[in-house]
Design a protein around this nucleic acid. Sequence first.
DNA 1: GCGATCAGGT
DNA 2: CACACCTGATCGC
Length: 432
Amino acid sequence: MESGMISVDRWSAGSQAYFLTHLHADHTAGLSAAWRRGPLFCSRLTGKLLSCKFPGIDLSLLRIVDIGTWHSLSLTSPSSGSPTDFVFKAIDAQHCPGAVMYLFRGDFGCMLFTGDFRWETSSKGMENGRAVLLDALKNQTLDILHLDNTYCNPIFSFPSREVAARQVVDIITCHPDHEIVIAIDSLGKEDLLLYISQTLNIKIWVWPERLQFMHLLGFHQNFTTQTSLTRVRAIPRYSFSNETLEALNTLRPTIGIMPSGLPWALEASKGSGNIFGCSASGAKKKEDSRNTSSCSENSGTATRYNDYIFVVPYSDHSCYSEIQEFIELLRPVNIRGIVSSKKYCIDPHYYFDHLCGAEQALWRVQQKLEHEEGMDRAEVADIEPVAEGNSPVVGRKRKLDQIDFFGIRVSRVSLLRRLCRGAKIADTEPLS
DNA sequence: GCGATCAGGT
DNA sequence: CACACCTGATCGC
């Protein structure tokens, strides 16, 4: 597909149709309540959350994409001016609520944008997604796969979210007299919190804006904004730090749990023996296969990061082996990773080139199907090349742009942002 | 005055 | 490092 037609998770001018995979901020940079550039396609749930995140956004531009069914669209080729028809389908990405992948099929060939996704072998949703993908591809080759390669390196190996969630509950039950804070983002990891809530039969504190999202997602019973009702609180990740935990511990014994698949988690501590922090007293220890001895090279278990912080390998992105399975299933002609890392090589080509290319794609077709069809494909070109760097700023003058609000000095922008979210303005508590 | 964007932090 | 997000400063209209 030529450029100037569609964009996925990119919001610069020049496309005729814009697709949003999910509502995390790193995929919505450039999208705002003032959106006017064109039709915005997203899943029903993302659409629902979108108007909460961007109040006042022009809903007439929203195009709800139901999951699992084909939709058709006709755009205009910018070069020839002739109409270009294609179909597309949304597939559950198992990343966060509302997250989908998009599969496009047309004269240009076939392309899949995963957005962020988790391809969890044990999950039902993945089985369904697998069936939908295979059915959608049928005897076609996948010409290009735009892949969530966040953890595309063999060092990233972690268990299913179900297993990781049990580790979190174990840590909590092993600290019966502690307050617990869990780091989360504005969206995602609801299943983890629900599991904790249901297993331990407790409510979980969340901040006010997050409770709004919980209600939109249909969770009405398990969450609260009243601190007095629970010892377990989910707090924004940006306010989760060692300093925060140290401050909290001057008030009450508190531990922090960081659900993450990230490397700093693994490298942190070389398992100081008892990961769950249980001594013989207190909650009964689970007699399962989880190994608490030394976790130096095992990234699949919870690790004690320091006195206060535990890191649990609960990830909403696919680990390496899941990415591998995904690519083996699809056998795309070409792959493009959507993220890059400075520290680790996560380039899909480095690991999976042998699974790609026209021959491999053809192999897949031959494996899966008997009936054949012409394999002639138009050349697949990229859509919407990234507009690179324009940062001419050299020396910025410091300017005071602050507003006195009931004696608290905040910047104008911060004040507006907080008002917009319905946040308390004069909030001096460390954790809200 | 306002929205958009960047820098820098967790 | 950076999963995703915040704040403050500044730019340009």
